[in-house]
Design a protein around this nucleic acid. Sequence first.
DNA 1: TAACGTTTGTTATAATATAACATTTTATAA
DNA 2: TTATAAAATGTTATATTATAACAAACGTTA
Lengths: 133, 133
Amino acid sequence: MVHKLENLSKNQQIVLNIIEKAKGPVKAYSILNDVQKKGINAPLQVYRALDKLIKIGKIHKVESRNAFIACKNTNCEVSNATAFSICQACEKVTEIVNSKLSKYLKSFQDSTGMKYKKYNLEFFGLCQKCKSK
Amino acid sequence: MVHKLENLSKNQQIVLNIIEKAKGPVKAYSILNDVQKKGINAPLQVYRALDKLIKIGKIHKVESRNAFIACKNTNCEVSNATAFSICQACEKVTEIVNSKLSKYLKSFQDSTGMKYKKYNLEFFGLCQKCKSK
DNA sequence: TAACGTTTGTTATAATATAACATTTTATAA
DNA sequence: TTATAAAATGTTATATTATAACAAACGTTA
Ligand SMILES: [Zn+2]
Ligand SMILES: [Zn+2]
Ligand SMILES: [Zn+2]
Ligand SMILES: [Zn+2]
């Protein structure tokens, strides 16, 4: 197996590092803020790195939150089948890795016969912690 | 059955009307642009109407597009179980109404035992038209 | 009427994201 | 190695999406 990390550029590694170390989803401008000491000065530099990292499946965008999260799924080399659980109270986000779910959705056919290349699913509710408050 | 339309305020009706007449998803600032002759001048007036319309299930937000679409599902009184098919070429968006899918997702349980109140699913691919080009 | 919740109007500003252009670095291959 | 193409960078400016804060008006119900 080829380790893609070695192929990442400087900016891409810096941005990935921040997202991987974070405890939850990270916002683009929070990343920008964190890296201004490391030579990245402009939003575009962050967004370009984010785009690439998404493309190669290292991170995902949590669409409903405009935030980014590291991929925890070793099989998920491209972000074409993603599912997340999102706590509406504490905003904790967890990537759902569930082969039954992904098989079900990958093979889903709608009435129009449209064939899907990609899906993104977001579940909302209360996590264990917040439920018991 | 109670017709909620009668309960809508002036701004809410104006905004809903535009979204229902549109052929595809509509952006907030495009709505704002369209209604400036009708006495709505500020983004907030549009966003407030959008929020309410989402809350009562008249429209949905297509998260990956930051756009809004009228609900076609007569059963869907609240936006707590939504699925869309999105063409990556022409940006056509269709709400998927499929009881098997919604039953499957409503009863989905992840490993943490978190119980979900709401989900949103977006499928991406090419529609019939764009596939055959 | 009084009280309450909802909606409105308005100004300002925050947060998220891309356009356009010049340059540099890296990979590929003649 | 040198040429060439592809990818990444740096920079300035701008576009797009969304909310804060406050005062006033409206609609419902007690
Ligand atoms: Zn993943
Ligand atoms: Zn929580
Ligand atoms: Zn609907
Ligand atoms: Zn299409």
